[in-house]
């Protein structure tokens, strides 16, 4: 069903995925994301301890765990947005292809952050029009021709199913959209710069159930093109959409593996208790 809609939307606007290959960046070897002995501390608090894990490509990976276990920190460390917090110290390796994100300078990070998109917990539209919200990322990364930008904006608004809702008000401020629409806009904005990986930090927690469902479906659909890593508070959501699961407790990876195995047949006592709802 969704695939059909997608194809329909595409044919309606007269372009295909191949057309977008021209915007694809070629320099990356797309060998996925993994980290080794990653340690993060904030103001002396050891938040992540010796985390080593591998994020499988073109899958939805769910990071679960009780609140305060460090799962958000882990996610924010992947694109080093965690640097905005005061007093952060990172050691260890986060490898994207052959590059170590953990010891990059701010300037190199700008390119990494293009390759790793982030969908925040609460949608945060940029202070500009709907059109410019999508175009912004492309502009700063070097696509400036109006014609190209038009194509990109239409394509990605379609991709998140927002095109028909906003096609008549592309030039109005993005703050005028509903929260659910804003979140989809933020998703469109982050995939418009053609990342390889999308990080989602409880991306549906601020949304109503209907919008939440729409965004969830989007993730499922997007995984054929992107690697998706999401932090989620709702176990049920993880059960629904995760292909791969990582359970974190007190800053340590307790269990990781295909979602089915982790959720249905957990090996570790802690994981079992968590899934049973003993602590959350």
């Amino acid at each position: 069903m969704t695939l059909f809609v997608k194809r329909l939307a595409k044919s309606e606007n007269g372009f295909t995925k191949e057309e977008f290959s021209m915007f694809k960046h070629e320099n990356e070897d797309s060998s996925g994301l993994y980290c080794e002995k990653l340690n993060v501390s904030i103001n002396g608090n050891h938040i992540l301890k010796d985390v080593s894990l591998k994020i499988p490509k073109n899958k939805i990976t769910c990071i679960v765990g009780p609140s305060g276990c460090g799962k958000s920190t882990l996610l924010k460390t992947f694109n080093r947005i965690i640097d905005m917090t005061e007093g952060v110290k990172i050691s260890g390796k986060i490898m994207l292809g052959s590059e170590n994100i953990a010891d990059m300078s701010f300037n190199d990070l700008t390119e990494i952050r293009r390759r790793i998109g982030l969908v925040p917990q609460r949608p945060c539209p940029l202070p500009m029009s709907i059109y410019d919200n999508i175009a912004y990322g492309c502009r700063i990364h070097g696509i400036t021709k109006r014609k190209d930008l038009n194509k990109i904006v239409v394509h990605y608004l379609n991709e998140v199913g927002l095109w028909n809702e906003v096609r008549n008000r592309l030039q109005t401020p993005a703050t005028g959209l509903s929260i659910g629409q804003q979140q989809r806009l933020c998703l469109a904005r982050s995939i418009a710069v053609e990342p390889e990986i999308i990080l989602a930090d409880e991306a549906t927690s601020a949304l109503d159930p209907v919008s939440s469902k729409i965004v969830e479906d989007l993730f499922v659909r997007l995984k054929e093109d992107y690697t998706i890593v999401m932090v989620t508070h709702t176990l049920r959501q993880a059960l629904r959409i995760a292909d791969y699961a990582i359970f974190i407790y007190m800053g340590k990876v307790v269990e990781e593996g295909p979602a089915k195995e982790v959720f249905e047949n957990p090996q570790n006592e802690l994981t079992k208790n968590y899934l049973l709802g003993v602590f959350s």
């Binding site: 947005i81 300037n107 990070l109 700008t110 952050r113 293009r114 982030l118 912004y136 990364h141 982050s190």
Partner: peptide, 13 residues
């Protein structure tokens, strides 16, 4: 802070 986060997450300088 979210605005800064959104901007940096897109790779802005």
């Amino acid at each position: 802070d979210e605005l800064y986060e959104a901007s940096y997450a897109l790779g802005s300088t």
